[in-house]
Amino acid sequence: MAKIKEIERTPNPDAMRFVLDEPLTNGVTRSFENDAEAEGDPLASALFAIENVINVYYVDKYVTVTQDGEAVWSELLRKLAPPIREAEPMTDLEDDSEVHVSKEAQESNDPRLLEINRMLDEQVRPYLLADGGGLKVLGLDGNRLKVHYQGACGTCPTATTGTLYAIESMVKRIDPEIQVISV
């Protein structure tokens, strides 16, 4: 059973990050945007069964839950804690090859995408994870890079402004013509 060490606010007022004593996964990231996606995942399914939960994102010792903005955190936290505490370590999970990069983007032969993903892995994703979220590259359509924010970043006001601008500035070093679009 997972023991909650801390509960941290994220830059997103509608998301909280639970820090656990022991890892749930060994580096495998899971991101769910609704209960249908969470089917077959005991932790995510239990969290989506709680009213107002709209996103579940977890990796290693971190579980981020995003609500719809309608719940009072003090009340919601009391409901979220038991399923997180009851979660069993999932050390046998296989990596989701599409958690950070869509299948379409993985199959692209555009060398810019390889460079962009390397840059995101080194310079962006670790910081987003520290804030309870992540970033998935959906694809490069001409000079339009489509990305999707995960976890706390998905509905965070700063993700779609400041972070998106910073990512676009970095990507422009690879190709000045690329425009980054959050979908």
Rank of each mutant, 00 (worst) to 15 (best):
F32M: 06
T160K: 06
K3P: 01
E177I: 06
E51T: 08
K61S: 11
G139H: 05
C153R: 11
E94G: 14
N34M: 07
N117H: 14
S74D: 08
D95P: 03
S31L: 05
A44V: 09
G69N: 03
A15N: 02
D68P: 05
L120E: 07
V101P: 00
G133F: 06
E88Y: 02
V72E: 15
L93R: 14
E51C: 04
E94C: 07
G142F: 07
E86C: 02
Y127W: 10
V72D: 12
E168Y: 05
D121S: 10
N109P: 01
V137T: 15
E177L: 11
G142S: 11
V101K: 03
P83T: 13
Y149W: 04
T66Y: 00
F48H: 07
K136F: 08
P42N: 13
V171I: 12
A15F: 02
K146D: 12
N143R: 09
Y62A: 15
V180R: 11
I84W: 03
L80S: 00
Y57D: 06
V19T: 13
L80M: 01
G162I: 07
T155S: 15
Q150I: 08
D121E: 08
D131Y: 02
K61F: 08
M119N: 05
G133R: 06
A130H: 02
G139D: 08
P13W: 09
K61G: 03
L135W: 06
I4P: 00
L43S: 02
P157W: 04
T66V: 03
E88W: 03
N117G: 09
R118K: 13
Q106I: 11
V56H: 14
Q106H: 15
L76T: 12
L47T: 05
E75H: 09
K5W: 11
Y127S: 10
E115D: 06
H100Q: 13
I181W: 06
S97K: 15
E33Y: 03
V65Q: 12
D35E: 13
T10P: 00
W73F: 12
E37F: 04
V171P: 06
N109Y: 03
E39A: 14
F48M: 09
P176C: 08
E33V: 04
I116Y: 01
R30S: 10
I181C: 05
P13K: 13
R112A: 05
P82C: 06
Y165F: 11
D110S: 04
E168Q: 13
L20I: 10
V65T: 11
E6I: 01
I174Y: 09
G40N: 10
H100F: 15
V72W: 09
